[in-house]
Design a protein around this nucleic acid. Structure first.
Lengths: 150, 150
DNA sequence: AGAAATCCTATTAAAATAGTAGGATTTATT
DNA sequence: AATAAATCCTACTATTTTAATAGGATTTCT
């Protein structure tokens, strides 16, 4: 029940792009530095996100990546599905596969995996990049870095 | 975000033992046949469950395995934690590790993984083997029609 | 022209997965 | 006592996945 680094890094990279949304393209070099991820590896990860239409790229010097939609329109679930495939703890509750399970008693366990899947989806589809940015702001505020003492 | 076959098979095997709870030891051969799992592989899986104290074994002819507790006292979460390790989509929310993440902005993503973890735990810790047996009974009564996928 | 960037394909080392293989030991039954 | 049925145990292995690395080709700003 682990998320691979691909999914983790992907969410962090997209979060980084969200934090700089509206400031023009962000180079992978910067993202990789800030998020402490191998730039070359991140390239592969973002390639998937680009092909899925979640980010746009601008080539050449001063180029980089920009979210294709507003941060409020991209959920963590969107990112994870691109990088990790459909959310499904086991294949028999994978909605993209249509194979049928032959075994009746298996349906009992299947019900469980469906519930697990649904609960995961409810969490990751309910959190947008905008939520994350907002949360990060809140944390910075709570830390006192941006606060005047009374 | 996949459960390995170990976890899947383990839950199915324990469900099988629960269905025959009170009827003496059940041999792995039977479980493996009924659940369509390699007997040899199942051996390894149940060894873990035995060492964790979830099942008791009786050696020799007519031996087999018995749940160490009532089906109502064993949850799906108990089984999965033994076979798959602690529920944690990423290590930074693994409660058995005590390493700290150095990066502040990572805490935002960490919060997400913690929510995912909690929602998974809520599901799997809330379902006992007794619940599964009961559900299976219900389905058998609602019989006649093929069991369809949820 | 040169630098900064994305884009692309291939390779690889390590780990995890999903079993197999082959026997040693224990115990009920005959 | 012999046999068969079962658990127990260690090791091996093939395949796949993971997490990168390598090495360029291409595009575009300055």
């Amino acid at each position: 029940m682990k998320l691979s680094t691909k999914g983790q890094y992907g969410v962090r990279a997209m979060f980084d792009l969200a934090q700089h949304f509206g400031q023009g393209p962000v180079s992978l070099k910067l993202v990789a530095e800030r998020q402490d991820i191998s730039e070359h590896y991140l390239e592969q990860i973002i390639a998937g996100l680009r092909k899925a239409g979640l980010v746009n790229s601008i080539r050449g010097a001063q180029g980089g990546y920009i979210l294709s939609k507003e941060p409020s329109a991209i959920t963590v679930g969107d990112i994870i599905r691109v990088l990790e495939g459909p959310v499904a703890p086991v294949d028999c509750v994978n909605e993209e596969l249509t194979e049928r399970c032959a075994r009746a008693d298996q349906c009992i366990t299947k019900m469980i995996w469906a519930k697990v899947r649904d609960s995961i989806e409810q969490v990751i589809d309910g959190i947008t990049l905008a939520d994350m940015v907002k949360e990060a702001e809140k944390m910075r505020f709570a830390e006192g870095n941006y606060m005047y003492h009374i």
